[in-house]
Amino acid sequence: MSGQIGNQPTPPEAEGPLLLDIAEVSKRFPVGKTGWLSGKSHSLVHAVDDVSLTLARGETLGLVGESGCGKSTLVRLLARLTDPTSGSIRFGTRELSAIPAKDFARDPDRARIQIVFQDAGESINPRFTAADAIADPLRQLQGLTGDTLRQKVEEAATLCGLPLELLARFPHQLSGGQRARVGIARAIGPRPDLLVLDEPTAALDVSVQVTILQLLVSLRESLGISYVFVSHDLNVVRLLCDRVVVMYLGRIVEVGPARAVFDAPLHPYTRGLVAAVPRLDGVRADALRLVGDPKSPIDPDPNACRFHGRCPIGTDRCGVEMPELRRFAGGRQAACHYAEEAPA
């Protein structure tokens, strides 16, 4: 990073070695022994369907989409908390998809992928002090004890701007912003290469959100961590992320540099999503509205676009031919038959 805070284009080593390379990953969950329409056949929820993406070292990737689009399942897959139904997850030079999540918990690489969960108040053990919470992964994953452990805990807390005198407190004695800092300190303690952030600022007021986002930027610069940042807030994703992945009903519909995607979306779903984000300069009269709800993720038609039916520009073709992700100029991809190059 060039000393500049925020996402400037051209992440360092964009062409360099990939940290994470996910190829054709799918995750299906069986539902009920008897689907209520399909007699006795096993129905499957296609939570994540044929997703491929890459993450360069030092890059920040945003993951956006409505609730139920498979963001959280994808995050759990790439953090190896759950096992994919099919596909490959390559972390550095190692293939992780074949290692069961149960065994990965004791794998030496466990420490290299860490997660910051949505609500630190809910995800920190209420009987752990801040120091215990930060020490736990260091103890479990790196076997640290005694003075080394204490030193590492204090180092992580300092990096996250958490005053050391707060380390003896329990989560309920901390403010929302302080709890968020504990959640981040806990995750960076083992010095991961990849940090997955699942809506880390969703529960915070804007002024606290700013300090947490700026903390994330400074950690990214000082520790060289790659981030996968999941958020509902497109404004935040735009400010923090180099690239963004837009998901709809388990599939990737658009990928590209964050600013390009939000300024000139290629996919009609992304257009609807961007148009729905409130802006300080007031509502646009011509704003596109996505009406209706997504289709059911249970046994979706493999030959129809998932967005078909809700799409403002869809045609009969979309009902019989699943659009593949196509490449566009500027490192962009979109999965729509009717996506066109943005006019230069």
Partner: peptide, 23 residues
């Protein structure tokens, strides 16, 4: 003014956002 300066808008840069001091 502080509240507006802390709101991530569609434009701007993360470095331009300012938190509100104190509680």
């Amino acid at each position: 003014r502080r509240l507006l300066a802390a709101t991530p808008t569609a434009a701007g840069n993360l470095a331009d956002l300012r938190s509100i001091p104190g509680n």
